[in-house]
Design a protein around this nucleic acid. Structure first.
Lengths: 301, 301
DNA sequence: AGATTTTATTAGATATATTTAAACAAAAAT
DNA sequence: ATTTTTGTTTAAATATATCTAATAAAATCT
């Protein structure tokens, strides 16, 4: 895949001017060039930029980061994410599952993840195994230890598990207000949203699950006909603060009489203005509380 | 959503030159313009273009089509797709399911689709109900009768059903060569691929399901480590013949020693050159035959 | 075969995106 | 308080995409 500098801007949330200045001052990235001198980036460079941005946000100086080799950056990433294993068993599961995933050994992966679900229940299995697994996969992609095919393979099996458990929940007719779940058009990873759907259904809430890539226009259109009580969406990708703000402002206008719950990238959400009326979900526990006592979290008009 | 003329080119497979000429001669589309005169299209115009292209391919003259009003085009589309109902029962299912879907009535939708699966089995239910339902949804989107949210809502429930049935198949360890299933990076609709995965698994084939948006690079990378016997992919979107050709040529090179099965948009696939070594799957029945007698379809070296 | 329709190619003009380089402003560190 | 680091703004030049318009080529129809 080939990226223009404007693509990197979208994907990293760093302005193209800044990307150029980092290159000029510190040789942050070394893009190839087109016939007439336009910068062209590949996946490796994209990963490097995302890593630099991520490490920078955790306090390291940009001038130092940019001068580092890819290997040195990998090392820093390892340090960052090497929390002491507070749950050895879960850690073992994650390692083994990844091992099976890298070999595309669905039989072994399936067997192990089913065992985890049996043992912990889907809810705790997601918290302790699946979610950490996905985080680790993301990290491994950034370190170029796996390719997208691995990530697709694994996340589709996890998707399969959650879908199956949703399907096995007793189907009931609801009368109350429903939860509308979706991701913005530029977001891809719907597993978190799918798990939220499972949790809500577990606690007898009505859910309308739309998944990823829903245009805002479409949300607007259905909002006139539907009795929606809560909106839940994720913003996971890094993006320009201005774009995130614009999106949230538009959404707020559409859903002016509905409680909006927002989860995802704290770097992005933290910078948003005028979101007093939006409930920023920072942890899974917080989300569980809302599910259990939704009334406490209703908006006061 | 706002599209540039190059986006329309990608999405419709019609060169931008031609789009302009159609506008100039027949007023095919009436884009708004930017400050400095660049054409800007919206979803409605995109749908109109896709409808014109589709009707053109079925024999109608471009000069006549372009002059028609949106309503007249809708009428032609209706005629095109109004086959006499050869299966009244299935037709009833589809209508009712769409009715429930438009109301986001998951309970009713679920109840009815489960009934269909019980009655026909998943395989026949897909052929007679789910697939026709998805086709009709696509048509309704093109006529602006539904918005993407409806399509997302319905297809996620169908996805849930197929995933559940895959999950409930007995898990077995395979030793033979496996089927690698994926969609190109610009393809979204993975339900057909998911159903193919179900069919293959039903007949005890080993499947590696990667789903949508897999970069070709990634396929290349895993191909060196894996024992893949068959590759199956869909090309559903309209696209420029040259781009499709380029993609297939690259894929052929990567999978030079593997049987490639290709399904999807016959307008696109039909125009490809040098695909003697690729098995073009034109119908579901053809696919079933391959599943039952894979040896007959092996490549001879 | 000849006429008609449709698509592709060309060319010069204009719009938009990117490039370089320097100066500036804000934030962080000393 | 001063220096260093960092990100933004400005400017003019160049590259790329799009625009119009006319012509050539190909496909289709009669």
């Amino acid at each position: 895949m080939i990226y223009a500098i404007s693509d990197l801007e979208q994907l990293s949330g760093i302005r193209s001017h800044t990307i150029r200045v980092w290159e000029q001052r510190y040789n942050a990235l070394c893009p190839t060039r087109s016939q007439g001198n336009t910068r062209l980036y590949d996946d490796k460079q994209l990963r490097r930029l995302l890593n630099i941005v991520s490490l920078n946000k955790s306090g390291l100086k940009i001038s130092k980061l940019c001068r580092l080799s890819d290997e040195a950056i990998d090392k820093l990433l390892d340090q960052q994410f090497s929390y002491p294993a507070d749950d050895e068993q879960a850690d073992y599961y994650v390692s083994q599952l990844i091992r099976h995933g890298l070999a595309f050994d669905e039989y072994a992966f399936n067997h192990l993840i089913d065992q985890g679900i049996d043992q912990l229940g889907l809810s705790d299995c997601y918290r302790k195994i699946m979610y950490p697994l996905l985080v680790r996969l993301g990290l491994m992609w950034r370190k170029d230890d796996i390719c997208p095919a691995h990530e697709h393979f694994l996340s589709n099996i996890i998707r399969q598990k959650i879908f199956t458990h949703i399907n096995n929940l007793p189907s009931t007719r609801h009368s109350g207000k429903s939860w509308l779940l979706f991701l913005p058009e530029d977001e891809d990873h719907d597993i978190g949203l799918l798990f939220a759907s499972y949790m809500l259904r577990m606690h007898h809430h009505q859910v309308i699950f739309l998944g990823s890539k829903v245009p805002l226009d479409s949300i607007k259109r259905i909002f006139s006909t539907l009795n929606v009580g809560h909106v839940l969406l994720f913003m996971i990708k890094s993006r320009l603060a201005a774009e995130a703000q614009k999106y949230i402002d538009q959404l707020s206008e559409i859903c002016s009489s509905t409680k909006i719950h927002l989860a995802g990238n704290s770097q992005v959400i933290g910078k948003l203005n005028r979101i007093d009326h939006i409930n920023w979900i920072k942890t899974l526990d917080e989300f569980e509380k809302i599910i259990h006592y939704p009334v406490l979290h209703e908006r006061n008009f």
